[in-house]
Design a protein around this nucleic acid. Structure first.
Lengths: 224, 224
DNA sequence: CTTGACACAGAACAGGCGTTCGGTTATCAT
DNA sequence: ATGATAACCGAACGCCTGTTCTGTGTCAAG
């Protein structure tokens, strides 16, 4: 008895193939061949596998490089590999010193951090992201610890409610604060509600260096 | 004029090949063929590419699946894909409720977060890691915000200085604190130095649920 | 009952691709 | 000089693999 697909969408067989490609890719770091898919999904003919792969491609779930061995890749969230961003760590950020942004950094980053695309909020998948490592306890009012890594998107202007890294020109100070524009200047609000906001008058200039999109803290043992 | 490799290590050519495999993999989501490597690295013979790949494999920089088309993968830090951990998000963590650990969780995780292996501290690459999303502001003394994701390793005992998630049995409270064993019980030290430690007497029991290995904060716009 | 879409099977073809092998050139220690 | 070794080239061999073509059984619409 034959299976007949009533609805035009994705059937059980399609999902099994999708799942197999995902698992195989994760294990071997390269896609399976058509025949391997057939064996593991109980399909005896390569043409049928091809037939399903064509459908999956039409549905936009995979992409295929025709004529290329194992030339297929998963699209979207179930792609086990691929979508990793390598964000350069340009240097450190601390209250007492201006920070480095990509365009100003004279040297190549010593290090980088890897972030899964799926972890990026609101599609900040731009390739111009950069990271800084926090030095010292001067950012604790932003709930950011010594050693934390902040990932930034370089921007000049911020919208209300975004956390920004700003250089307070007249105070010679770098800080991480929530940004709010008000009628008489700016309000820089600490993340920790027990701290008071910094009010910036219109005549005082601020230099927004970037918008914080993520903070990462690797826990290490604390001494004492 | 021929290039001759004096030292037994990795030469310029090897690095060029390595770089090409990495870039190709990143773009196509599958490895290049031997002939493609040759073309882009100015090697006219497939046997020479094979020759170099053998050396790279001996050096432990790649692995090869012989006889399989494009059956190669990068080993180590320059692997653009692969080493990603999928950590299940088992639920939420908040002061007022006990937390779920993997063995106690009755349902499958609704969601998961993806972390690059390279980001994991001190080789906590165990597959038993789990994640919880912080709900509410009750963890601010641990420098952890509402909405943050904490990644935990399930442990029963902790070593001094490690941040642990503990269930305070007699107080019906979950908390994240640095753990220190002292002669008359335990000291649970907040990450934020402006808060005071919790002293646990010997007769009071605590239930260590896990050790915090990472905290991730996706920044979103703050209202008001 | 016929027709056509759909889900398959199987075989054959052709190009992709890894492997192997015989040679060649350059460098270096003996 | 000479042999050893490393770094190549080119071609041939043969499996791997995607593609294509013919054919079959099922099911629903006309």
């Amino acid at each position: 008895m034959m299976m007949v697909r009533k609805s035009k969408g994705i059937g059980e067989r399609h999902q099994k193939i999708l799942k197999f490609i995902e698992d195989y890719q994760r294990e071997h770091q390269h896609p399976p061949s058509i025949r391997e898919i057939g064996e593991h999904c109980d399909i005896s003919s390569t043409s049928v596998v091809n037939y399903y792969l064509d459908q999956l491609e039409k549905e936009g779930l995979i992409e295929r490089d025709r004529k290329i061995s194992r030339g297929m890749r998963l699209i979207g969230s179930n792609n086990p590999l691929g979508d990793m961003l390598r964000v350069p760590v340009l240097g450190v950020i601390q209250a007492g010193e201006p920070i480095l942004v990509p365009s100003e950094s004279p040297f190549t980053p010593e290090d980088s951090v890897e972030i899964a695309m799926s972890m990026m909020p609101s599609r900040e998948k731009g390739k111009d992201l950069f990271a800084l490592q926090v030095q010292g306890d001067s950012m604790i009012d932003a709930m950011v610890n010594d050693g934390d890594i902040v990932i930034l998107k370089p921007v000049q202007d911020a919208r209300n409610g975004e956390m920004v890294a700003v250089w307070l020109t007249e105070r010679n100070e770098t800080t991480l604060k929530y940004f709010f524009k008000e009628k008489d200047g700016y309000r820089l609000q600490p993340a920790n509600p027990t701290f008071k906001p910094i009010m910036i008058k219109k005549n005082e200039s601020i230099d927004i260096k970037g918008k914080v999109v993520m903070v990462i803290r690797k826990m290490e043992r604390m001494a004492a």
